[in-house]
Structure formats: C-alpha cells, structure tokens
Design a protein around this nucleic acid. Structure first.
Lengths: 213, 213, 213, 213
DNA sequence: GATGAATGAGGTTTCATTCAT
DNA sequence: TATGAATGAAACCTCATTCAT
C-alpha cells in the first residue's frame, strides 16, 4: 500500500514475477537473521532465492533496495497491528492494566517475529536514509498517534505535550522489545520486563500506579 | 581499561604509534558520521587518516576491529559518566526532579556527541556480536546498576524486580536520545521530550508524579 | 540492393515487420549520434526503439549486424548520389570549377547528414571487417570510378594511374568532410575549406589552377 | 610532455610503477592491432600485460583511459616528426618534389607503424571526446602549421586562406595513409598513390605541376 | 509478431591483504 | 614505522540471448 521503492521494479509484474519478487524478500529476511547487514550480498540473496543475480537486478537495483522493500512490506502490516492494541481500548483501572499488558505484548511479539529487519529500519534511519525514515515513521507513528488520542481524551490530565509522551512511550516499547534478550542476559526477568513496560505505559497514560501492582 | 580487541593492539605502542592509532579511530568516527556502516572500508579509513591500508593493518585486523576499538574508547568514558548522574543523587521531591532532568540531559548529550558509534554498538549487539554486547553492557550497565541501587534503597516501594525497571528506564533513555531528531520531525517538542524522559524516570523511581508537573 | 547481412532479414517482412525493422535502424542511428560505438548495446537499441531485446533478435543477430544494415541502407542511396555530381559534368574552365564546387558540396552534405554511421564504416573497415569494407567500397567506389572516367577522357593529360589520383581525391573529400568541424575549430574558414577541396579536385582533374582563383 | 589523462595515475610513479604502466600501453596497442575497439577489455589488457585487472586500475580508470594514454604517448613523438619533414625544406622545383615525396612517406610510415591507435584518435574525436580532439589537434596541427608557414612564405601565390589549404592537405595525407590498403585492393598502385599524394602537396604549395611528372 | 521473464556468462570494479623496501 | 606496489578473490552489474506465452 506504500509507494514502491524503485519505480522500475513497479512495472506491472505478472503472476510469475510477483512470486519471484517475494522469494527475494524472503531470502533477504532469512539472510539477515543469519548474518550481518554488512555481509548481505546480492550474490547470496540470489543464491538463497534459488535464482541468479541477473534476475535479482530485474526486481531491485541493489541489496539495500530489497531491504527497503522488505521493510515496507513488514511495516504495511505491523503498523496498524500495533495501533489496534491501543485504539478503542479501555484505559481505566483493571481494564487499563490489561490494555497496557496487551500493548507490551504486541511490541514484543512484533520484534520477536521481525527482529532483523526492524533493527535495520532503525539503523538506516539513523544513518540518514530518508526512505527508511518514512518507513519508520509509518511503523511507530501508528501506535504513537494512537497514544496521542488516548492522552488527549483524558481531561483530568494536564499533559503538556501529548506527542512527547507518546513518543517516549513508543521509544521505550520499541527499544525494550528490541533488546529483551540483552536485558535478560543482564539479569532482568522477562516477565517482569513485560510488566515494567506495561507499568510505564499505564503510569504515563493515567498518571497513576497500576492497580494491584 | 577494557579487553583489547586485537592482540596486536596490546603491544606497547610508541608515542608515534599511539598517535597513528588515534588517527584511525578518528577517521572511523568521521566516516561513520558521513556514510553508512556498510560502506565503511579499510581503504577509506586509511585514506581519511592520511596513511595507507598497509599501515592500518599494523594496528587493526579489520575495519570491524577498528570500530570495536572506537566503541571501547567511547564507552570507557561514557559509561561512568552516565552513572555519575544517578549515583549519590537525591531522588526525593524537587531534588529528585532535578536529578531526573540531569539524567535525561546526560543521555541526550552522549548521543549527540557520539551518535554514529553508539548506533553501531546497538546494531552489532543485535546481530549477535559478543564483543559488542560486552561493550553495550558496560555502557548501559553502568547507569542501569545505578538505577537498581536507587530502587533497592527505597524501602517504601515494593518493586518486584528492580532490574526490570532499571532496564526499561535505560532502554527508554537510550532510545529517545538516539531518535530525538526523528521524534521532533514527527512533531514532538524537544523540551517536552526531555521532560517526558525525566518524568518516566521520576515516576518509575518514586512511584509518584513529579512535583509541579 | 546489397548483400543481406543476415539470412533472417532476407525473409519477406510484412508491412508491420518492415516498420519495426526500420525503427531499429533509426534507433541505432540516434544512439550513435548521442553515444559511442563502444557503448552501443542491444538492450539500448531495443529500449530506444520502444520494443524489447527479444524482438530485436527477430531482425538482427547482433548490434553490429544492425549497424551494418544501417550502413548498407545509407550507402545504397549515398553512393550513386555522390557519383551523380561527377558523371556527365563539364570539367573545363568555369563550368569545371562549378562542378568541382558541386562535388565538394555533395560530400560535405552527405557527412553532415550521416556522420555517425559514416565514421563507423571507416572504423570497421580499418579494423578488418570485410562486410564493411564492401560497403565502403560501394560508397567511395562510385565517385572514385566516376573520377577515373573523367581522368581517362582527358587525352591531354598523361596521368600515370588514374585510380591513384581518383583515390586520393576521394580520400581528401571524405576526410575533410568528416572533419570540417575540427578544421574550423583549428582556425580554418568553412567557406575556404570548401573552395580548397574544390581546388584540389580541379587541379587534379585539369592540371591547372581554377579560373579566377 | 602532455598532461596526464588521469590525475590519480600521475602520482609519482617509481621505477617499478613506470615499467608496469608501459606494459599496459603496449598491451593495448597489441590488442588493438588484433581485434576491434569494441572488444577491447580491461581483462584482456591485464592478461596480455601479464598482470591482473586490479593492477590495471591502479594506473588507469578504464580501458578508454589507457587508450588515451597510448594516444598521447604516440602523438608526443609523431607530431613533431611529421612537421620536421615540412619545416625548413626547399619547396622549389626538383627539391620541392623531393620534399613532397618525403612528406608523403612520413605520413605513410606513421600510419603503417601506428594504424590502430591513430584510427581510434579519429573515431573518439568524431564521437565528441574532447581529450582525444586535443590529441588529434596536437598530431595534425604540427604538420598543418608547418604547411601554413610555407604557404605564407610564398609571395607569388595569392592564397586566400592558408589554413584551409593546409587543412585539406593534411586531411588528404592522413586519410590516404590510413586507407592505403583499401585503395590498393580497389585497384590503385601503391607507388602511384604515393606520387599522387606528393603531387597534391606540390600542386597546392606551388600552384604548378611537379617537374618531370 | 511481440515480449515478460529468466539466466549463463563475463566484464568491471573494488576490496582486503600481503610484502619488499 | 610506514608505504608503494601488486594481486587473489569476490562482489557488482550488465549484457546477450533464449523461451514460453
């Protein structure tokens, strides 16, 4: 649903072509799970996809381009998914705590399923790549905007800048999800991490400690 | 001092050698500010440092090795720096709020000064590189442990897992600092982001809303 | 008609096919005007012609083949054209001077209109390509033979080898026409170059200086 | 003595480097004698020079670059050589005829010895390459300017534009020399071609038929 | 007749790395 | 310590070419 990375590659793909393109994206994801971004090579992608480099270049202009396409494909699905755990939820009391845990779970699950491409979205964005920044905005903007709506709907709270709070929340959720493993190996318990994530969400949205915490 | 990345580098370097090595580290940092990690090349590092690739190999075994060395050099200074803003501070009331803001500022300033290498520490860690994970642990472990101490010293709070809370805090601080610019371009105000960061710190450490917020 | 370069092309082409073939020849000529022969590629020819490489191969066996076809098409028209300015002309006195100027003009105009393919006929011939040598012979042989006839018809002249004189004349005319621009940028006046060409023709054919020169 | 084609490649070559560079130029010349320009490949050049493509790129940025270097090297010697057969010669009567024959011989010999690179100078110039145009100007400008001097020194002749006459002469000489073989296979006698060349020179410079012709 | 799609093949280019000086 | 010079290796990329549709 997003603009295609390479205009060229957009030329009406037949059924066969679409399948080939998909194979490449899957190959990229697999390789990124096994090795590093620096090592990602067109040759390897083609080999893994069971085709040739020449074919690869009929779909993408470079390895980076395929990575971007994978990022877009991932985000097109994931952004709305994350937001869906925030929009239209009840944030008061016990229900709010449930919602908070649900949000934490959604983030954790997303990173669990797409760790490698998600970390590259971050990297490329930080390195100044506009196209990736747009992807990142699309991914995190969805839940962030949802948080903003929630914060705005709470007349009892005098939040100065809902965007700041929402941004901080999303950052926290994304980063902890990305580094769950590291935090655990450092000594933190994964269940408690989940609860801590939810707690910050709850605290920020309601200004109160979670019930029964 | 941290574990030396390369046996070579442990060799006592003369004054001249030490200067050369330093030039390489600076070259790496510059190149990472200008280009991407994927593009970082031994040839370029040498060129930027004003020497030859052959010389580079007398100090490092590969480009990654130089990056690691830069990471270590950065973290050796930065870790304690971050912790110093947490240890021995007063966390109650107004003083606590000041401390919270100070912590936020410390994180922001660190990323402002060393964005490129810090993002690579994250990336390499996520990609499974043990050596970088150690560096990362050293960097974020310092403030995290300091947070743990603070949480443990608060008998009025029944924190289940101080490590989880501390980890979440540090994650949030690191991630927001890393992406301040992106958050701003999304619409958030930088001053408010800083306050939001501090607020989460304060909330988590004290369980209460900051005074006068 | 000249020998067909490819068996394929001898096949009777329908109206549609003939048009397609023509599009390819035009594409070749355009590309040769814009870029170099080295860069000429089947892919580019097809793209420029608005079709696909696969289609190209239904008409030509290689890029060189299309170039040869273009050369043949050009020469089929140009050879007789050049000769027509020599055969049956009056070469004495003032009329001869007019004829000489006419010959110079004909050569200049031909190169002006087909510079890119004409230079390739030269190149390929020099590189030993028989087929292009035949084309070249057809092109320059026409006016050269016409010169020979003129020289042979002059009983007052004891020309040792009319072919040598004719060959030298044609060489001069072709080369100056091909490099008019270069000669101008070197400082020569284009009008005078034309007159100089004509003068050498007149001198060689009559053994005398042009009248009123 | 001419500006080096690639600034990079000019970096102080040691004795070893200079020899290597020379090997490449010789390889280029050999390959151009055997095959076509279109087929000229960096891989082949390196193979023929007994080194590797990687080494080639330490001296030249592309095959074309090496061709240009060869052209420059050739012209640096050949330009003055051609001019030396025109400057300071006696152009009257029998001596003049000797000089004319000498000029023809000089052109013929030069093309005989360097046919392949000389034709590429022409081609590249015609294709619009500035650097080659400069080389060509240097090559043909030398004898052309010498002709201009001779024409200017003849007060008995009322030459309108010495540059035009000189340019036409040089064009004729160059073109016939380049295509001697073709002219012969067309039927012209090589000895007579040489005499015809000389005759046009003599006619143009003196306005008279050669003595004893 | 025309062309999406695929790919073997091979040239281009760069990189990491070594070594003699 | 430093570096010209060289190069094996490999990635990049494109091209020519073929088929099935």
């Amino acid at each position: 649903m997003t603009s295609s990375p390479t205009p060229e590659s957009a030329r009406s793909l037949g059924r066969r072509g679409e399948a080939t393109r998909q194979k490449f994206l899957e190959a990229v994801e697999e390789l990124l799970e096994e090795g590093t971004y620096r090592e990602l090579t067109v040759t390897d992608i083609a080999r893994r996809a069971g085709t040739s480099p020449a074919t690869f270049y009929q779909y993408f202009s470079a390895a980076e381009d395929a990575v971007l396409a994978l990022a877009i494909a991932t985000v097109d699905i994931a952004g709305p998914e994350l937001a869906s755990h925030i929009e239209g939820r009840d944030w008061s009391d016990a229900r709010g705590w449930e919602s908070s845990l649900g949000v934490a779970d959604a983030f954790i699950a997303l990173w669990e399923g797409h760790r490698s491409i998600l970390r590259l979205i971050d990297l490329a964005t930080d390195e100044g790549d506009r196209r990736f920044r747009d992807v990142r905005t699309q991914l995190l903007g969805a839940p962030a905007n949802a948080f903003v709506s929630v914060l705005r709907d709470r007349p009892d709270r005098h939040v100065v800048d809902p965007l700041a709070d929402a941004g901080v929340l999303v950052s926290m959720l994304a980063h902890v999800s990305a580094h769950l493993e590291g935090l655990q190996s450092w000594g933190a318990d994964s269940h408690e991490l989940r609860r801590s994530m939810a707690r910050v969400v709850y605290l920020t949205l309601t200004g109160q400690s979670p019930p029964g915490d």
